[in-house]
Simulated scan of single mutants.
Amino acid sequence: MLYTPATKRALRYCLACHEGQLDKTSLPYALHPVHLAEQMDGEDETCVALLHDVMEDCGKTPDDLWGIGMSERVVEALTLLTHDPTLPYLDYVRHLRDNPVARAVKIADLRHNSQLARLDEVRPRDVERLRKYMEARVVLGDMAYELVTPAGSVRVLVNGEPYPFVLVDETCEEFTCCPSYGEGSGTDGERIIGAPDGAFRLEIETLPLAVGDVIEVAHEFGTDIVDYGSDERVDYVVYAVCSCVVGVGCYVDEEDDSPAANCAFAEDGRERYVIVRDPVSHRFYEREHVIPVRVAWKRGTEAEAAEIVGWVAGWGGW
């Protein structure tokens, strides 16, 4: 946590306001704002994280916050973060997203409150609340419904309907990649220096889903496959389309003694999964309920470009 005179005043006020309050698992409620504050870099963001619930849950007012020396920027963000119950939830989120301090704290708040592992018992309303939080994260740009590449978009569908996912930019500088050893690789035995033009990890959260739900990584890259491979960790395919190559790597992990061998999902064909166990019962370990998918692309259709993209989508980083 960033410690300044202002953040220490905010911390003391946070602990005083939430004294005696417990969360849904009977832990001190103040642990939540402190957890958010630990993720902030700036003074204003830290103060807002610590105090983000004192107006809504503890009856404090802007005047109270002025009284402990909070800045105008902090009070403005806290006012935006205080949900007026007459305003629909997603409208409230849209209203605050243009304030950078409020947006940063709200994203951290939603991420923490989406962790069902915090709950000893998960009820249907908790799962529905998670779905609402995922929609709010889309509004704030912390989740997405598609990844746009030069070859077209990648989306996630659940039972044929669009489904949001976390999108992590993994685009890197130049690196040396090892050759692929899967079927279809055309440059075995060589070491290649290069980098993709773009690389992203999609994280598909399965906790709101039910046994039998089908998850598809959907795209329109066609059938011109220039490289592919698989092992016990990942299946990947590299497509040539629109004067570039684009690779999609889907997590598998078939090792019987690995934690993922007992995860909530299972591969169901190329770039498809099915929910085979209740995801909520696997909520304590992210690897068991979050499906990672890698997408990478590079302009050009030569074998070296395909090898670089195949390495990033297939072997690198898993």
Score class of each variant (00 low, 15 high):
Arg277Tyr: 13
Arg103Phe: 01
Lys60Glu: 09
Gly317Gln: 04
Leu31Trp: 03
Gly20Val: 02
Gly184Glu: 02
Tyr251Lys: 08
Ile192Gly: 00
Thr187Leu: 14
Glu174Lys: 11
Arg287Gly: 13
Thr171Asp: 05
Asp256Phe: 14
His112Ser: 13
Asp213Lys: 03
Gly189Ala: 10
Glu307Pro: 01
His112Ile: 13
Ile107Ala: 07
Ala303Leu: 15
Trp318Gln: 06
Asp57Phe: 15
Val101Asp: 00
Thr25Val: 13
Glu19Val: 07
Ala144Tyr: 00
Arg97Asn: 03
Val211Leu: 06
Asp44Gln: 13
Arg131Lys: 12
His52Gln: 14
Arg155His: 04
Val168Tyr: 05
Cys58Phe: 07
Ile192Arg: 01
His52Cys: 13
Thr223Leu: 08
Arg123Asp: 09
Glu271His: 15
Pro88Val: 12
Glu38Cys: 12
Glu135Lys: 15
Ala117Ile: 10
Pro88Ser: 09
Glu45Arg: 14
Thr187Glu: 06
Val238Asp: 00
Thr176Trp: 02
Ile291Tyr: 05
Ile225Ala: 08
Ala240Thr: 00
Ala10Ile: 04
Leu51Tyr: 01
Tyr89Gly: 04
Val148Met: 11
Val34Phe: 00
Val280Leu: 12
Gly184Ile: 09
Val312Ile: 14
Pro179Gly: 11
Tyr145Gly: 09
Thr223Asp: 10
Glu38Gln: 12
Asn262Arg: 15
Ala313Thr: 10
Asp23Val: 12
Ile204Thr: 07
Thr301Phe: 11
Pro259Gln: 07
Arg155Gly: 07
Glu45Leu: 12
Val166Glu: 09
Val138Ser: 00
Gln39Asn: 11
Ala37Ser: 05
Arg201Tyr: 09
Glu302Tyr: 14
Trp66Gly: 02
Arg201Met: 14
His18Gly: 00
Leu11Gly: 00
Leu50Asn: 01
Ala6Thr: 14
Tyr145Leu: 08
Pro179Asn: 10
Ala264His: 04
Ala16Arg: 03
Arg123Ile: 05
Thr187Ser: 11
Val34Pro: 03
Asp23Arg: 14
Pro179His: 15
Val276Pro: 02
His219Asn: 12
Gly300Glu: 07
Ala199Phe: 10
His52Gly: 11
Gly314Pro: 07
Tyr89Thr: 09
Asp142Phe: 02
Val75Arg: 00
Thr25Ile: 10
Trp318Ile: 12
Ala264Gln: 08
Arg272Gln: 05
Leu80Ile: 11
Leu167Lys: 05
Glu254Tyr: 14
Val217Tyr: 01
Ser26His: 13
His18Asn: 03
Glu76Met: 08
Tyr181His: 15
Tyr285His: 13
Asp188Ser: 15
Asp235Ala: 06
Leu207Gly: 02
Val154Arg: 00
Ala6Ile: 15
Glu286Trp: 11
Asp227Glu: 15
Leu167Ile: 01
Asp227Thr: 09
Arg131Thr: 09
Gly314Lys: 03
Gly310His: 08
Cys178Asn: 11
Leu87Pro: 03
Val252Phe: 08
Glu304Cys: 09
Pro88Glu: 05
Glu19Ala: 13
Gln39Ala: 14
Phe221Gln: 00
His282Lys: 15
Met134Tyr: 06
Trp66Tyr: 13
